[in-house]
Design a binder for these strands. Structure first.
Lengths: 315, 315
DNA sequence: GCGATTGATGCCGTATCGTTATGGGTACAG
DNA sequence: CTGTACCCATAACGATACGGCATCAATCGC
């Protein structure tokens, strides 16, 4: 019968009290139970841990060594339980967040900063991807939470709108298009466009297409890029103009200017999306913190569709 | 009922096998016993460690963390038992050795070097003291083994003669006394002497006194020193001469020369002394190694008085 | 839809553990 | 030297926990 933690506790009590009787009192057991427990453990180990005379009890050299190590074992055990508890309560762990260029240019840095300040035991991983790729990662469990733009087919997924942007016209800073305080959609549509490529920007390109379709305009696309920096680079070079959410105000690119679009009211929502059936405690903590953080923004609340999430997983 | 090590073993088996049935087989228990054990542990912790569907078992985030920590706990436990076992077997620990100037100039460095080469897990502490002080330290348990000169009252102590020295005459190198190949005791006795002081050299002074008494000589003592370096320093300065065991050949002091004493056959034994009733396993290892080492010396064996020592303490 | 597989549950026998009573040996006081 | 107090070990007995068997419920694959 191997040595158990209760054996360690019993032994340490005796070693510290230097008395079976006092140790038994401390452990709230009778003294014979202690004597036998220690004796059994010593038989298991094959050597004595305590040198008993009828008057005094003191650890053998092996007992002294074992006591020190045993304390370490019990401490490790406590730490293990602590860590597991914190993990189960969502106060520790790792959360992997998918994001797109709008989210990282818009609300996400604030959200993450506030979250990390409050939960320094939760490690935040970030993974950049477009809407479709993020949803695929979410289904595979590779990310816990997504920040993306709609539309999404939300079969069983929770969503929360965290940000709402108007659209802006973006052009080279010396372009006459951005000479005035704002831009008419028709003027913008008349120009050749630069857009994110189909691989990662499918959802956004669809939104832009609808924007122009409503105005019966069909701008020509003359260049594409994999991400915002490339698109803005192309815009700065004068290849074309583009349409970008207002979060572009947080993105600095030399040689580029942006203006509100005078006759467009449509907005682009950034959604936080997660799977309530598979979400980890740490990710739950993040989602809750993010929702709370968004609620404090002056723009007010947005529509949300959140099923109840148990704070601690139930047994 | 707190979490025990067997709970950790059970949990790790299930977490690794990802199956209660397979884990039960591995642990040589029936599957229901495992189910109940895990369930009881989860109830104790307050959160689930394993997410079960009827077809698959996988750890929760808390379970993953707990598994990693639990492995550490079990490893610590094994290390604790290992360390205690090694200590009990005298393969690990600390041995505190008392020594005098003759021992450190004679056999002790060799003994310690050979011992440390063979037992790198045993820490060797050294404490310099005279015969009486060493025996006092031994009784108080402050040292495990003594290297000293007799005579000693050995009530219950073990002893082993590890070294035997003839006496030498020591004088300043330009002293006519040491001009020849050896020295007559009467010539030596006629000179003023330097000796170790009474505080730490009581036993040796007694031996020297007897040496001269047998030759009916009573040399004058003109200076004393606390240790060999001081005595030899005084000799080098020409204050007086001294008598020192032949191990002085290992002690270099500029300006000093030594010669055998022509008409003295008496020898000085260095004894290893320990208390067989209180000796630690590590010290037992040392004593055995030292005896073995001494046996390999060309001078042959010396008389010894060693009670049997159990190699491993009995239960 | 049916069998196979997997984990959970109920029941029971047993080993383990804890408690009380007692014994043996030592230190201390008188 | 003797009596007493104290301390740990042992014995006997009762309570608890534990493991094994049989069975049930749920899911997957055919």
């Amino acid at each position: 019968m191997p040595v158990e933690l209760r054996d360690l506790r019993a032994f340490l009590a005796v070693a510290e009290e230097r008395s079976f009787a006092r140790a038994a009192e401390r452990l709230n057991v009778a003294q014979p139970a202690l004597s036998r427990r220690i004796a059994r453990m010593e038989a298991e180990l094959g050597f004595p841990l305590l040198a008993r005379t009828t008057r005094r009890v003191e650890p053998t050299p092996a007992g002294t060594v074992f006591a020190a190590k045993a304390r370490g074992v019990l401490e490790e055990m406590d730490l293990a339980i602590d860590a597991a508890t914190r993990t189960a309560q969502g106060r520790m762990g790792e959360v992997c967040i998918g994001y797109n260029d709008f989210a990282i240019g818009g609300p996400l840095p604030d959200v993450i900063q506030a979250f990390r300040a409050e939960h320094d035991r939760i490690w935040v991983q970030l993974k950049r991807a477009g809407t479709e790729e993020q949803l695929r990662l979410l289904r595979r469990g590779r990310v816990d939470v997504c920040f993306l733009i709609g539309p999404i087919v939300a079969d069983g997924l929770n969503r929360h709108t965290v940000w709402r942007d108007r659209y802006c016209a973006v052009a080279a800073e010396n372009d006459p298009l951005v000479a005035g305080p704002d831009v008419a959609l028709a003027d913008l549509a008349a120009r050749p466009h630069v857009l994110g490529d189909r691989a990662g920007w499918q959802a956004y390109r669809e939104r832009v297409r609808r924007l122009y379709t409503r105005a019966e305009a069909f701008p020509e696309i003359v260049a594409e890029g994999p991400d915002t920096s490339v698109v803005l680079g192309l815009v700065a070079s004068g290849v074309g103009v583009t349409v970008y959410p207002a979060c572009i105000e947080n993105v600095f690119r030399r040689g580029v200017a942006f203006r509100p679009i005078r006759d467009v009211d449509a907005t682009l929502d950034t959604l936080m999306v997660w799977d309530p059936d598979r979400i980890s405690p740490a990710a739950t903590t993040f989602v809750e913190a993010a929702i709370g953080h968004c609620a404090r923004w002056p723009d007010g609340r947005y529509d949300t569709n959140v099923r109840a999430m148990p704070r601690v997983m139930t047994l």
